[in-house]
Amino acid sequence: MRSGDFAPPPKSFWQDVGGRATFERLVRAFYAGVANDPPLLALYPEQDLEPAIQRLTGFLEQYWGGPTTYSEQRGHPRLRMRHMPFAVTFDARDRWLTHMRAAVDTLQLPPLQEQLLWDYLERAAHAMVNA
Rank of each mutant, 00 (worst) to 15 (best):
R82C: 05
L41E: 05
V17E: 00
G66L: 13
Q108D: 14
Q113R: 15
D5K: 05
L43T: 13
M100W: 03
A127N: 15
A42M: 06
P10H: 02
M128T: 09
G33D: 01
R93E: 07
A124W: 10
L49Q: 00
Q73E: 07
D119R: 15
A92M: 13
D5R: 06
K11C: 05
Q115H: 08
R123N: 11
R20K: 08
Q15L: 01
L107T: 03
S3V: 15
R2S: 15
I53P: 00
H76V: 06
L109S: 02
P51C: 10
P51L: 09
L117W: 06
T68Y: 01
S12C: 05
P38R: 10
R95W: 01
T98C: 06
E72R: 15
A103E: 03
Y31C: 10
L43D: 04
R74A: 04
P77V: 10
P8L: 15
F86I: 11
P110Y: 05
L121A: 13
L43M: 10
Q54N: 06
Y70P: 07
D16G: 05
Y120R: 14
Y63M: 10
L60I: 06
M128Q: 04
R25S: 12
F13D: 00
D91F: 07
L41H: 05
Y31T: 10
P10Y: 05
H126I: 14
A29M: 11
D5M: 11
Q73L: 12
A7W: 01
R101Y: 02
H126Y: 14
H83G: 03
H83L: 06
H83V: 08
P51G: 04
A92H: 14
R20C: 04
F6D: 12
T22D: 00
D48A: 03
R28I: 10
V129L: 02
S71A: 14
V88E: 02
G18P: 03
P38V: 15
T57V: 13
P67I: 07
A21C: 06
R25H: 13
P85V: 09
A92Y: 03
Q62G: 08
R2L: 14
L116Q: 09
A92Q: 14
F23R: 00
Y44I: 12
E114Y: 08
Q73D: 02
N130H: 09
R20L: 12
